[in-house]
Design a binder for these strands. Structure first.
Lengths: 251, 251
DNA sequence: TGCATTGTGTGCGATATACGAACAAATGTC
DNA sequence: GACATTTGTTCGTATATCGCACACAATGCA
């Protein structure tokens, strides 16, 4: 791509949107400039543009995003047929298992939820389409990373912040790479409280009709209720059934 | 705002993102140009920029959004504390009622879901944070429109596409304005299969500690199970309880 | 008050971008 | 195969935008 095929004003604007985050519902121009590492004048123009288009509110001091920005993300969710196709299968799966079922895809070092059928919540965090979790310690992440070429998976691990969320979290890249090989061979991944104490999950890859891995689905359960050792026996058959059904409808 | 405080390159880029929609998962440059009414060369630069930043994939012919664009929408969901605060209350509400409970805010002529606790699905459409429904025929929409000044509500109705989704849908602006007055006086709105046959819902406004309406919450139920006439008796007390609890924690 | 510190708004020159037009390549039509 | 149409790409130039520098306002502090 030629350099002149890049609209830096657009790129800068997107950076400004992403500057708003968990702990930053409202930003001043100067704050946004620091976070994005852009000039104040530039950030000011971007924020005023956002406000003018209705993507942000401005009270003369603080800028805050409006619900309109959800349309940008939603363009993906509704544009890709994947979430829509998977949802009913997930509902059925969740009901049969009596546990929450989810589907996700990989984006960089994270898994992104694209659909979810939840039973009574067991996790402390609230997951919904768009939510993200680090791939290395999530069951769907393991499955999706295992589907990549070894070098690619390794590259993603290198870029990941491998921290121990619980005493059980595997953080050694070598151990993880070995785990990916096992997942690839056996076709499923089980996570035993590596993300959060008290939570187990099991995931399998979802392939399209050409055999390409396009997503992962999983079932999560409270460890107190279903020990990790039992996850496979209880839920793998259900997951495989769903995986097979999806393979026939995904192109 | 001075004209020079507007970054048109940014605005054009956002327009291009929004061009991707339900029936358009993949777009060529020319298609996107038609949809956005921009020059092909301009759209091409925007799409190549999106691809370069990882917000889109490009196979040489078609562009498709990647899950990364969800980060833009998620910037809103995680930036505003509202969804996070409301979620646990919604879970409790949903459990007590044995039905799905949701929270939403107004954006233009639509309500936007910001949180949801779903029981077994009764709707044909899948709702999750970010989903949108026309305000005029949704229970939360009625409540949120009723909270506005009459002129504002009227203005939104004028901009709305008032179509009859079912034979029961109210589409006459006068009838709707009258309904808003009733909602304002009585503090709740009931929808009897106006959005979808077989679905009833009841909503109340959620106020912050200064009494400003910041969102709406609702409970939806299958009409076959809970007739519209019973919605008030069964669910209004639960909704009012949640509303009161939220008023104490929202500032 | 004096003096930093922090934040916002504006003018300007250098640079980047959009537009329209032109061309090449692909596609559809007869 | 010839022709018309559509699409992707490139190019020159008029215009828009960026980043910098500076002015100004508000706040905190000794």
């Amino acid at each position: 791509m030629r350099e002149s095929d890049f609209v830096s004003g657009f790129a800068r604007g997107l950076k400004v949107i992403e500057a708003f985050g968990e702990t930053r519902p409202r930003l001043t121009i100067a704050e946004a400039a620091k976070l994005t590492d852009l000039d104040r004048a530039t950030v000011r123009r971007c924020l005023l543009t956002l406000a003018d288009l209705g993507y942000a509110d401005y009270d003369g001091k603080f800028f805050a995003l409006t619900p309109k920005v959800l349309r940008l993300g939603h363009a993906y969710l509704s544009a890709t047929p994947l979430p829509l196709v998977i949802q009913p299968y997930l509902d059925q799966l969740s009901e049969k298992a009596g546990q929450s079922a989810s589907a996700s895809v990989l984006d960089g070092t994270e898994v992104v939820y694209i659909a979810r059928a939840s039973q009574k919540r067991v996790m402390s965090i609230n997951l919904s389409p768009g939510s993200r979790l680090p791939a290395y310690c999530a069951s769907m992440g393991r499955v999706l990373l295992a589907a990549l070429a070894e070098a690619e998976a390794r590259n993603i691990l290198d870029r990941s912040d491998l921290k121990a969320n619980t005493p059980l979290t595997k953080t050694d890249p070598e151990v993880l790479m070995e785990e990916f090989r096992r997942v690839r061979a056996e076709g499923y991944a089980v996570i035993d409280q590596e993300l959060e104490l008290g939570l187990c999950s099991i995931a399998v890859p979802v392939e399209n009709d050409r055999g390409r891995v396009v997503a992962a689905i999983n079932i999560g359960a409270p460890a107190a209720h279903v020990p990790a050792a039992e996850m496979k026996a209880r839920y793998l058959p259900l997951l495989m059934e769903t995986k097979k059904a999806l393979r026939l409808v995904l192109q």
